[in-house]
Structures are given as structure tokens and as C-alpha cells.
Design a protein around this nucleic acid. Sequence first.
DNA 1: TCGACGTTTAGACAATCGTCGAAATGTTGG
DNA 2: CCAACATTTCGACGATTGTCTAAACGTCGA
Lengths: 112, 112
Amino acid sequence: MTSEHGQDGEPVAQESHELSDRQFAAVAKALADPRRFGILGEIAASEGALPCCALSDADKVSAATISHHIKELETSGLIATVRKGRFVELVFQRTTLDAYLRRLSRSLSPTS
Amino acid sequence: MTSEHGQDGEPVAQESHELSDRQFAAVAKALADPRRFGILGEIAASEGALPCCALSDADKVSAATISHHIKELETSGLIATVRKGRFVELVFQRTTLDAYLRRLSRSLSPTS
DNA sequence: TCGACGTTTAGACAATCGTCGAAATGTTGG
DNA sequence: CCAACATTTCGACGATTGTCTAAACGTCGA
């Protein structure tokens, strides 16, 4: 599953557009856990793609926990996943992060 | 105005510098709850200061809950509180938000 | 084919979280 | 002084979360 997880028919898009309220909340929540943020940082650093098992956290927590965090990052739109045989490539979605930063700035700016 | 109150003994006070790892995590967590983010938005909107009881959420949840969120926002450094008689003035700390945005951008940028 | 490997799912558990009501604290005005 | 008000603290509750183990799934190589 390389796409998203909308549940009420509202698709969770990852264009350079604005984030829906739901996706904005999902991104904020995804960034709130230090371990998850660390994983995201690693994915963002290795621009391109890397499999789950290459994450440095892979030997700090169980595979199930990694999978859980990956799913949450994907649901929020911060990363995309691409199956490559046995592996799953993790791709950072910078557009989502940028949209989050924009909305955060905008919705807390004095002229809002 | 740009320098924090010199001799108050207020807990969290930081310049427009970098956030510590702990404060970065605290800000991320503080922003992760929609209601708390809404409260922060209201505080940021009324640039200057407003008391807790003036928050629009004040009639949606109990006073205890408001107080809890206020404390979390204050602990993270996103707002400051100033007692004004019976009231507590809430002051948005834009420098903290800006520092958070900067660190978020920087730590997820390709050249990190 | 079969077994090893990467990943996901299911189920469970403790910790944390958002919320509440009630009581306490502190402050102002009559 | 006292009553009303703003806020905080306390203790509790259900929901969510991060984590685990065990099992299942899917894919490759020998």
C-alpha cells in the first residue's frame, strides 16, 4: 500500500497544497514522538530511499515497533513507502513537511 | 520588552537561540493536541495578552483542563504567564515557535 | 521447493494523556 | 470580613500510545 489511509472518503493528498485539518493534526502527532522523529530524520537524510531494516533504530526496538512508526509516518503523509521485493523503501515527502511548516507559521502569525 | 523580566524568577525563559533537545520535544508534544493548538492560536492572535477565562475553549472544557493545557504550553516555552491580580495573562512567545520551526527545517533538510 | 529473511498483523501490557468534579488557593469588590 | 470570581491542585477515569512477543505473510536464493 503506497497510498494513503483516508477513512471518510477524504483523501490525504501530499501535493504542495495546503494540509487538511486532519492531516495537519496527523503530522503534528507524528512529529511528537522522539523516536519517530529520529526515524524520520534518518529517512530524510538518506535522500532517495532506504529499507526499514537499514534504520539505526532497527536494533534498538523490535521490528513491530519500527513497522508501527513507519505506518504512522506514512499515514501522516510525511513519508511514502514503496515495496521493492522483500524490502520496503522509505521516501521522505518533503512537500508535506513544507506544507506543515507553512501552515504552522501562517496559523500562528499575528495577521491571521 | 525584548529582554525577559530580569528578576522575577520565572522558570522557562530563552532567547531567540536554539532549543534544547528536551524543549524541542516539549514543543512538538504541545503542538500535537488540537485543542491545545487551538488555545495557542487564540493567544497568538490576540497579540499582547489575554486571561485564561477569555479563551473560547473556556466554555467547551472545564477550567481544570484549560489550566492543564496552559501549563503544558508554558512548560514548553510557547507561552509565558503573568499574574495580573485575579487573572493570568497569557503571552505568546514567538521566539520559541520560530526556534522550533528553524530546528524542524534544519534537522530535516538534505544538508544536515 | 524450501528455508531464511524483511515486514506486517494480532493481541497484550504499562505508561501517558485529556478530561472531569471537587476542593483548595488567591484576589478583588462591596 | 465576606462573597464572588479566576485559577490551580488533587484524585480519578477512560482512551490512546509505544512497546513487546508470537505468529503470519510475502519474497527471494540455493
